[in-house]
Simulated scan of single mutants.
Amino acid sequence: MSSIVDVNLSLDSALFLDLDGTLADLSPDRNSIRIPPATERNLLEIFDSLSGAVAIVSGRDIDDLAIRVPEALWRIGNHGAFVLAPGESGRTFPSLIDPAIIDDVKRRCAELGLDLEVKKTSIAIHYRSTPELESASHGLLARYAGQDSEYLLEAGKMVAELKVRNVGKGKAIEERMRQAPFAGRLPLFLGDDVTDEDAYPVINRLGGVSIKVGAPPSLATTFASSPAEVRQWLEQQAAALHTL
């Protein structure tokens, strides 16, 4: 099993990173999660060294992601569905979830006291603060998912999420890798959750390095112990790239 400490960026790397649980520590209050200022500076330094080939790829709604990530970076939200280029802001993205489903889930969540997050391509119920509601959370959303449905149900870290099909981080990264400034580079992707697993085979096939924050099992080839280790690694890589 390879460790992130054995991985080094080069000037022809392309870096993709998840936010929650990868760059920033998880918290019961998802609204409090931010990238630490020192890590933001390291990311911007790496962005300059890699000629702009750095992207944050998150399941967060693109509007939410935009307020948590420096505007100078690529921001890919909604599990890869929507992209903001460096410097881009104020763009409007459509919701892909049936409004009737949103209204029904909102009503049921209010009745059960569930923590609901409505995004443009998914509906997520968080139960980190109420783990006893795990079964109720998954059961509520399961009625809308199925083999013949346009939605699928995924289980993440203390979250049940109903997602639009054919949206994923792997697909989004593959699309970026066909375009400047990512094309022709060796990709690295760092993630931590079930929703990151579809990206690892893409990275592996492209000859890059797939890194999971956490323990196996995973389709990733390399592992980091915690977001703190990721942040330390980024600090080291930012400094090392300056010498190349």
Rank of each mutant, 00 (worst) to 15 (best):
T222K: 07
R143P: 07
T39K: 03
G90H: 13
D48L: 02
E40H: 08
R108N: 13
L234I: 05
A53E: 00
A215V: 14
S10R: 07
S49T: 01
Q179W: 00
R91A: 12
P36R: 09
D98Y: 06
R30H: 09
L11G: 02
K163C: 13
D115K: 10
L162P: 12
V83I: 14
S225M: 10
L140G: 15
C109S: 15
S2C: 08
E150S: 12
P94N: 05
R30M: 03
Y151E: 06
Q232I: 09
Q147W: 04
E197M: 05
P70K: 10
R107L: 14
Q232N: 11
E111Q: 14
N166T: 02
G214K: 07
E111A: 15
A85N: 00
L65D: 07
P94V: 08
E40C: 15
C109Q: 11
I33K: 09
I97G: 08
L234K: 00
I76R: 01
K157T: 13
T243N: 06
L50K: 02
I125P: 13
K163P: 05
D98V: 13
K106F: 04
Q236F: 09
P37F: 01
N31M: 09
S225H: 13
T92M: 08
D198S: 05
K171I: 12
D18F: 07
A220T: 03
L26F: 12
F93I: 01
A72L: 12
V105E: 08
V7L: 07
I123Q: 09
S2D: 09
K120P: 05
D6I: 03
D196W: 02
F189S: 02
P99S: 06
S135F: 11
E161P: 10
N78C: 15
L96H: 12
W233G: 11
I46Y: 03
V57T: 05
I102L: 12
L26S: 12
G59E: 04
A136F: 07
S27V: 06
T121N: 03
I125M: 12
P37C: 04
D20S: 09
I4N: 08
V230L: 07
I123S: 09
G21L: 03
A66L: 08
R176A: 04
V7F: 05
P217L: 04
D25N: 14
Q179I: 00
V164N: 07
S2G: 07
